[in-house]
Each structure stands twice: as structure tokens, then as C-alpha cells.
Computed example of a mutant assay.
Amino acid sequence: MLIYLVAGARPNFMKIAPIVRALQAQDVLSFKIIHTGQHYDREMNDVFFEELGIPQPDVFMAAGGGSHAQQTAKIMVGFEELCMAERPAAVLVVGDVNSTLACSIVAKKLNIPVAHVEAGLRSGDMAMPEEINRLVTDSISDWFFATEPAAVEHLRREGKADSAVHYVGHVMVDNVLYQAEKLSAADTSAFETSGFKAANPRYGVVTLHRPSNVDDPATFTRIAGALKEIAAELPLIFPVHPRTRANIEKFGIDLGPNITLAGPQAYMAFLNLWKDAVVVLTDSGGLQEETTALGVPCVTIRENTERPVTVEEGSNVLAGTDPETIVREARKALRGEGKQGRRPQLWDGKAAERIVAILTKELA
């Protein structure tokens, strides 16, 4: 029985990688990796897939670019052709990108069952495109694989059958634990940021990419002011998203001399950077979870999070965009008082095995 595994952006591949490895360990289900091409990423080369321990995608659709509607439409048209030609037994989607939404709709209209990994996450912020993608995908999926108890509760409140909702843990945690073990035996001297780490035994890591933070000059300026203040006490390194870099130049954002700007990092290089940080300052959803998995203090520069378990149990603090709060929480980490929390239940590196076992039972 053939399953399509859909990925459209680099973080999606980190989520499907453990599922691929779990599928390779059994002989009931076969799979194809479908890369919609939603994002082009120069780092997604042969080495990228080798690091993840998975093969190159079976299909590359090259559907990226354009507005949300244009991108979603191109993915739907291309994915429909694939599904009609081969009729997979199921389609598995991950996360909350446009590819997740587009391929779920196509599959359901062709009466192909849909499995959603990371189902049930809710921020309550309908200004986030990801929130719309989550809600629509969960409204039509057949199997829901949840990463935390809050997600299970959201799905139950939305009327999903208990038999379809499965709390399995988190494939992103599977992946970060797998990669961290590989990294412990790897030569990291060739990484772009190895010089920075050698020169700065104590440092912090910054990532910012959400439109609400970097597309508004006033908000971005306030956040930059907080980062400059922190950097006066702790060197910061900032791997910069291309749109963020463009806005730094466009708005004339001054980050000061103590923040080192770097290019986008390959997965292992970035893991090698943030895993040893005194604090991570971010607006990334995935990084909130990964820092919790490894117990690294994290200050999230957002007003809400769809991943509350990282705050309730993990190493994450929700600081909003108020500079005073961001600086205060970062200083706690500098003093050795940063939140470390604990790894939530079932974040044990075996979520993908649970997902594959359930799909095997359901499809058989």
C-alpha cells in the first residue's frame, strides 16, 4: 500500500524524515516523498537529505512562488495529476504550510484518506496564514496525530472522533534527538559558525521571520532595540531569513556591533549553533519545540503560541514584542536562571514509530 508523504518547505522534511525511517523499517506500507516545491532552498541539496537519513524526493513539483492563492492553486493542480495517475492508499501531510492545505483538499476530493501530523495546534490568531491552514486541514483529515495534550483537546472540542485522534508525541523531537546523536560524533570545524563559537564561549542565538515582527517597521525597530540591549551583555548571532534581511536594509534597522549576522544555516550547522546557546530568542514555532527537547532556554518573541506545552512544561517563555519583557527574560538566562523545564510526555524519539504502527493497522 502506497502512502504519499507531502513536504513543501525545509522544516517539513525534518518532520517527515523520522516517518520515512520508520516506514523503511517495515514491509507493509510503501511510500513516495512528494516535494511540492513550495519553497526553493539552496541548502536542500544531497547533503541535506543525507544528514536526515532519507532519500531524495521521488517527485519535485516546482510549484513555488506567487501569492498564497497562486501557490496553493499550482500545488493543487500538480498534486491532483499525481494522485489521479497513481491513486495512493493515503496522503500524509505535516505542519501548516500551504502545501499541507492544498494536498489535503485534493486528496479528500479524490476520496483518498488524509493523515495530518501535528494536528490540533491552535494559536487563535486568524491573521496567521498557518492558523487558517491548520483549521482547514483538520476539518477534512481522517487521522489526527497530535504532539501535545492541548492539541488533543482542541480536536475533541471541534468534534473529532476519539478513535481518529492519536497523541503520539512529536516527530520534530524524533528528528532533533536523531540529529543531535549524529552531531556528537561529527566534525563541526567546517561549519560557517564554528569560528563564532570558538571566539564566544557564551552566546545567544536569534531567529526572526514572522511578518508580524519583521514586516512592520515600528515593531521590528522595538525588537531590534531589545536585541541590541541584550547584545551589550551577551554576544548574539543572527542567521537571517532572506525577507528579514531585506527589511533590515529597507527600514534601516540598526542592530549594533555586537550582533553577528549570518546566512541561513543547514540543519546540522544550525543545531550545532543553538544547542549550546545560553538563550535562543525566536519567533519560530519549531524552534520552541526543539529547544524544549534539548532543555535550552528559549524566549519567544510573539504574543501567542500554538505550542503551549513548551511554555507549560518546557524551556520556553512567551515574551511578546515588548522590549522590556524580552530583555528581562534574556537576562534571566544570562544569570543562569533561564527556564529549562522538562521534555513533555511521549517526546521520546518514537513518535514516528507510533504513527506508522497506527497507519499500518488502519490501512490494513
Rank of each mutant, 00 (worst) to 15 (best):
S139Q: 07
I140W: 04
A186H: 03
V176C: 00
D187Q: 01
Q179M: 14
A190W: 01
T219D: 06
R156T: 14
F144Q: 04
V240P: 04
M126C: 09
K228F: 11
L135G: 06
A199S: 09
N213M: 05
K182T: 08
I132G: 02
A185M: 04
N175H: 08
V171N: 03
G225Y: 03
T244H: 09
A164Y: 04
S139M: 07
L183W: 02
L234I: 12
P129M: 09
F191C: 05
E131V: 12
E229D: 10
V240Y: 04
I223V: 09
A218R: 11
P217M: 08
L236C: 04
K182L: 10
G252K: 03
G204D: 07
E148V: 00
V176T: 02
A151H: 10
V173D: 04
E153I: 11
A226S: 03
S194H: 12
A127T: 14
G195F: 05
E130K: 07
D215C: 08
A150F: 02
T188N: 06
P239N: 11
D142T: 15
G225I: 04
F251E: 00
D216K: 13
S139D: 06
E153H: 12
S212C: 00
A151Y: 05
A231Q: 06
V206P: 15
R156D: 15
A199N: 10
P211A: 13
F238H: 09
A199W: 02
S141P: 00
V152T: 05
H170P: 15
T221N: 12
L183Y: 03
T188W: 06
I248R: 09
G204P: 02
V214D: 02
Y203L: 00
V240I: 09
P129S: 04
I237R: 05
T188H: 05
V171E: 06
A190R: 07
E233K: 13
P239D: 08
L236G: 00
S141T: 06
L234E: 02
F145E: 13
R157Q: 15
W143V: 11
K160H: 08
L227F: 15
P201T: 10
M172Q: 00
T147Y: 14
L177S: 01
H170L: 11
F238K: 09
H241R: 13
R156S: 13
M126H: 05
E131F: 10
G159S: 06
P201E: 08
F238V: 05
L177F: 08
R243P: 05
L135A: 06
D162W: 14
V214S: 08
A164P: 03
E229P: 13
D216E: 14
F191P: 00
G159F: 02
I223E: 04
V171G: 08
T147Q: 13
A180P: 15
E131D: 09
A224I: 12
L227E: 11
A161W: 12
T147V: 14
N200G: 13
L177Q: 08
R202C: 04
P217R: 02
Q179C: 10
H170F: 02
F196Y: 10
R222K: 10
S194R: 13
W143E: 11
G204W: 09
A231N: 09
A146S: 15
P211Q: 12
D162M: 11
K250W: 01
F196T: 02
E181P: 13
F220Q: 06
V165S: 12
R245Y: 15
R156V: 14
V168W: 05
K197M: 03
Y203S: 00
S141E: 00
V205I: 07
A150C: 06
A190H: 11
N133H: 00
E130Y: 04
P149S: 06
A224S: 09
